[in-house]
Computed example of a mutant assay.
Amino acid sequence: MTFRSILFGCALAVLGHVHAEAAPFCVETSGIPLRCLYTDPTSCQQEANRNGGRCAVNPAEFVPPVSALPYCLVEAGGVTSCVFADHATCEREVARRGGACVASTPVPPPGRPPSPGADPYQTKRP
């Protein structure tokens, strides 16, 4: 009986760990590793506010969009708006609408081929 309960506890710990890494939103606090436990950016931001951090996207789950402007707002459902010229404006919009502010990938200069191995049709999701 004890062996089964230990085995069951280990299985739950592994499953919980896999779920934590698969969540698209993370709380980022200075000096603490990312805590990627949130599927909803609003709940992520609320927890970040309680801990003095910020809500960020999970780098393992999100590929930053290519945009001419440097910052994007990522909202629930993968809605991304890359319309912010500075981080402060993006963060104000995060406070108003929820979500996470992320840095975009700069648009390559015209006439320059894409980097080797880049897939222009890659699916991007937060």
Rank of each mutant, 00 (worst) to 15 (best):
residue 87 H to V: 08
residue 76 A to F: 00
residue 84 F to V: 13
residue 99 G to S: 01
residue 20 A to N: 08
residue 95 A to N: 15
residue 29 T to Q: 13
residue 29 T to H: 08
residue 103 A to Q: 07
residue 108 P to C: 12
residue 79 V to Y: 02
residue 80 T to R: 06
residue 25 F to K: 04
residue 39 T to E: 13
residue 15 L to Y: 06
residue 99 G to H: 04
residue 36 C to H: 00
residue 82 C to F: 13
residue 94 V to D: 01
residue 12 L to W: 08
residue 88 A to L: 12
residue 113 P to C: 12
residue 70 P to D: 14
residue 32 I to P: 01
residue 25 F to G: 08
residue 1 M to K: 04
residue 80 T to V: 13
residue 11 A to K: 03
residue 32 I to E: 00
residue 59 P to G: 05
residue 57 V to T: 15
residue 24 P to F: 00
residue 99 G to V: 03
residue 109 P to T: 14
residue 80 T to N: 10
residue 91 E to S: 02
residue 66 V to E: 12
residue 118 A to R: 11
residue 38 Y to G: 03
residue 46 Q to N: 08
residue 119 D to Y: 09
residue 126 P to H: 05
residue 17 H to W: 12
residue 17 H to P: 00
residue 2 T to L: 15
residue 24 P to R: 07
residue 32 I to M: 01
residue 12 L to P: 02
residue 95 A to C: 10
residue 97 R to V: 05
residue 91 E to P: 06
residue 18 V to G: 01
residue 55 C to Y: 01
residue 65 P to S: 09
residue 15 L to I: 11
residue 96 R to V: 06
residue 84 F to P: 09
residue 1 M to G: 12
residue 12 L to H: 07
residue 70 P to F: 10
residue 35 R to A: 12
residue 24 P to I: 05
residue 66 V to K: 06
residue 117 G to F: 14
residue 21 E to D: 02
residue 68 A to G: 07
residue 8 F to A: 15
residue 117 G to Q: 13
residue 74 V to A: 13
residue 40 D to S: 08
residue 14 V to A: 14
residue 90 C to D: 11
residue 101 C to L: 11
residue 35 R to T: 11
residue 111 G to R: 06
residue 14 V to P: 07
residue 94 V to T: 07
residue 37 L to H: 10
residue 7 L to Q: 04
residue 121 Y to Q: 10
residue 112 R to I: 14
residue 13 A to Y: 08
residue 39 T to R: 04
residue 85 A to M: 09
residue 42 T to Y: 04
residue 61 E to H: 08
residue 116 P to W: 05
residue 46 Q to C: 00
residue 22 A to L: 13
residue 67 S to Y: 02
residue 105 T to Q: 13
residue 11 A to C: 15
residue 53 G to F: 03
residue 20 A to G: 11
residue 32 I to H: 08
residue 78 G to Q: 09
residue 10 C to T: 15
residue 122 Q to T: 11
residue 12 L to E: 03
residue 100 A to W: 00
residue 62 F to K: 02
residue 28 E to C: 02
residue 75 E to R: 15
residue 33 P to K: 02
residue 100 A to D: 07
residue 113 P to S: 12
residue 113 P to F: 14
residue 15 L to M: 14
residue 57 V to R: 01
residue 17 H to Q: 09
residue 8 F to P: 12
residue 67 S to R: 02
residue 26 C to N: 03
residue 56 A to G: 06
residue 125 R to Q: 13
residue 31 G to D: 01
residue 80 T to L: 02
residue 114 P to A: 13
residue 125 R to D: 07
residue 26 C to P: 01
residue 62 F to G: 01
residue 85 A to W: 04
residue 95 A to Y: 10
residue 104 S to N: 08
residue 102 V to A: 09
residue 80 T to G: 03
residue 62 F to E: 04
residue 65 P to T: 05
residue 79 V to P: 00
residue 113 P to R: 09
residue 85 A to R: 06
residue 3 F to P: 04
residue 94 V to Y: 02
residue 12 L to N: 09
